[in-house]
Simulated scan of single mutants.
Amino acid sequence: MKKIILILSIIALSACNSSKEKNKVEKKTSTEMISENSKEKINDTVPYEDSVMLLGKANRKGLQMDAFKSWFNPGYQDYSVDSVTLEKLKPFLKDVTITVFMGTWCEDSQRETPHLYKILDDAKFDESKLTLITTSDEKTTPQSFEKGKNITNVPTIIFYKNDKELGRIVEYPIESLEKDMLAILSGKEYKHAYAE
């Protein structure tokens, strides 16, 4: 009789624990769903020609995917930052945010984006103030991040201060990324390659 009571107690206890575990899993799942829904998709890839392209919001981690690191890493490592211009540029980067529209499929973006990251790293720029938007070859995103931004060519690097656009570099710099950035951020007259 004692054995039967002991076995029934064990079964009841394990059923109770199983129910608690199930509740924990259900709670965890709903929390994960909430956090998943509240998070924006980042580093989303879609098929492109024989590979993939990033499309929408992205970051440096996305550029380290196999499809992109073959051009990003050498472009970053091999770029020699103009240290003289960089020293002049650093104070102007303090209160600035930067939005980059680029295409992982685009040779100009493949050239300029790693260089920009290297410059910003050397300047100790806060990467949380950099927004990377990757576009289709029509310069669009599913979320319409480009809407109202007049993105005609990529890369387009837009500099903001207090949510006001200070200027932009379009497709390629006029002198160099560092010198063009300094001109824009210091308030000198600057016209990008496609300015009328």
Rank of each mutant, 00 (worst) to 15 (best):
E49H: 13
S35H: 14
D180I: 01
D122A: 06
T85I: 12
K3R: 07
V25N: 12
L13R: 04
S109W: 02
E171W: 03
I42D: 08
Y48T: 12
E178I: 11
Q110A: 06
T31C: 03
R168T: 10
E165Q: 15
I34G: 01
A15N: 13
E112H: 04
K139S: 09
T131H: 02
G75E: 05
S128M: 09
S70P: 00
E36M: 10
E87F: 01
I4N: 14
G103A: 07
P155H: 06
K188E: 14
I133N: 07
S109Y: 00
D163E: 15
I4E: 15
T140Q: 08
K188A: 13
E146K: 10
A15C: 12
E87Q: 15
V96K: 15
I158S: 06
M33Y: 09
K61C: 08
V52S: 08
W71S: 03
D44S: 11
T104H: 01
C16A: 12
N43D: 12
I158G: 00
K27A: 08
E127W: 08
K90T: 06
L132V: 13
V52E: 12
S80E: 14
D121T: 01
K39C: 07
M1C: 12
G75N: 10
L8P: 04
S35E: 14
E146H: 11
Q143S: 11
V96S: 05
E146M: 07
E26C: 06
P91H: 10
I42H: 02
E196I: 09
T131R: 11
K94P: 03
S30I: 07
N73C: 00
N43W: 02
I7A: 11
F72Y: 10
Q110S: 02
R60C: 03
E165C: 04
Y79E: 10
M181W: 01
V154G: 04
S186K: 11
T85A: 14
P142D: 08
K61A: 15
V25T: 12
L177T: 05
T104C: 02
K88M: 04
R168D: 03
K27H: 05
I151M: 08
S128E: 13
G62E: 05
G75W: 00
K41M: 11
K188C: 02
M1H: 12
S9R: 13
S136V: 01
D163Q: 15
L185W: 02
P155M: 07
A15F: 11
K88W: 05
L54C: 11
N162M: 03
T156V: 07
Y76T: 06
K129L: 03
K188L: 07
N162H: 13
M53H: 09
S186L: 05
I119H: 00
L130T: 11
S136K: 01
L8T: 11
D66G: 12
I174Q: 08
V25W: 11
D108H: 10
D95K: 14
Y160H: 08
L185D: 03
K24E: 14
F101S: 01
I174G: 00
D122M: 08
L89E: 04
E178H: 05
I4M: 05
L166K: 15
M53F: 06
R168M: 07
R60D: 04
Y160T: 10
T104D: 02
I4P: 00
D108W: 02
L166Q: 14
S51K: 14
N150S: 11
